[in-house]
Write a protein that binds this DNA or RNA. Structure first.
Lengths: 191, 191
DNA sequence: CCTTGATTTGTACGTACGTACGATCTCGCC
DNA sequence: GGCGAGATCGTACGTACGTACAAATCAAGG
């Protein structure tokens, strides 16, 4: 494993443990076993290394979501939702570091346009993937309207639950509770 | 206005413009017109000032949500949802700074237990408020089960849409689109 | 075996940071 | 009018930061 890889791995670790800005170049060197000066050589600057690490870490959470969504093969939309939520909630509980990294990525996105753009693109893709999975159709068949509606809602749901998992995993709902809540919200009669 | 207040106002401004850690004590002094040494005098440390500012800023977004939720008085759950989403989306578009501050607050929560606790409490309250508003009942009448289900879903929806507004406001759905998406998800028949 | 280019190392420079602390000011009160 | 506590100011100290750069090392090719 090259120092470059070591640095990236260490950066991701420290991103989760200390956050973006509290991580110093010397921390990175120590955590990765690489030499302080290697940061400049391989990445140009400490900031560039941290940005790269942040984007990679965020990508991993996106991948988790995508694969989880793809795995649910029920017939009924509500049932698919239930299964997905349960699977995601389980994933969230087990991978808190990835959630932390995602939150750090979002925080950086406020000031770094590179990160912002990657996140925006990734979000758009996730919305399409989720909308398609939820309807059990091919992503190509989706119209923009559906992505904006269904995709946004699904993404919001997952992102919101991720935030909840990040803050207080104990309070996460089950897939069943989510489905029942959705049915209440969909209701077209006074309570 | 005292220097203390000036410092807090400046800190909130810089929290949004530069983020938590990139804001230096000298930035704070300059932005608030207060003297560098006043930070130590009034808040003990620069970090304590930034934490206070972060919590205040986060509270403002919570207040926005709460008042918006309270304002929607339709009879039908879905209709209430539609109105709320439209109102919140409008609020998000007009108050990007508050969204930025919230994201910064969450990022800090990963490493600061004070912030984490306040955020957790605030989230729990918001979930209850939203669940109650959505059912058009008094918060006291809510059972824990409903808060966990309906409250979580509503909170996740709002938090998720906030994140979307933060990243790419253009892609936000309308209340109508959200309601239609929810109805699809609630569907108990194969598409 | 020597050369050459890509890495890794050691180190030091300049800078900007947070904070401590004494001096100075403000102003209500005796 | 002076006293004293609270607030503000000026400044300097020690530190830790990011980065530059020359030296050392390594890996292949001729």
């Amino acid at each position: 494993m090259s120092q470059r890889d070591d640095l990236l791995a260490g950066a991701k670790k420290l991103l989760v443990e200390k956050g973006y800005h509290r991580t110093t170049a010397r921390d990175l060197a120590a955590a990765s076993g690489a030499h302080l000066a290697s940061i400049g050589y391989h990445f140009g600057s400490k900031d560039a290394l941290m940005t790269t690490a942040t984007l990679q870490a965020q990508g991993e959470w996106g991948d988790t979501i995508d694969t989880t969504m793809a795995a649910s093969g029920a017939e009924i939309p509500a049932e698919r939702l239930r299964i997905c939520v349960d699977a995601l909630v389980a994933a969230m509980a087990g991978q808190r570091e990835v959630l932390v990294a995602s939150v750090q990525a979002y925080a950086q996105a406020a000031f770094d346009n590179d990160i912002r753009e990657v996140l925006t693109t990734a979000t758009a893709e996730t919305r399409a993937t989720m909308a398609a999975a939820s309807l059990d159709i091919d992503p190509q068949e989706l119209d923009a309207e559906t992505v904006r509606g269904l995709g946004s809602v699904l993404h919001a749901l997952v992102a919101g639950l991720s935030l909840q998992a990040f803050l207080d995993p104990e309070s996460l709902p089950t897939g069943d509770q989510v489905v029942r809540a959705v049915r209440i919200l969909a209701g077209d009669q006074p309570d």
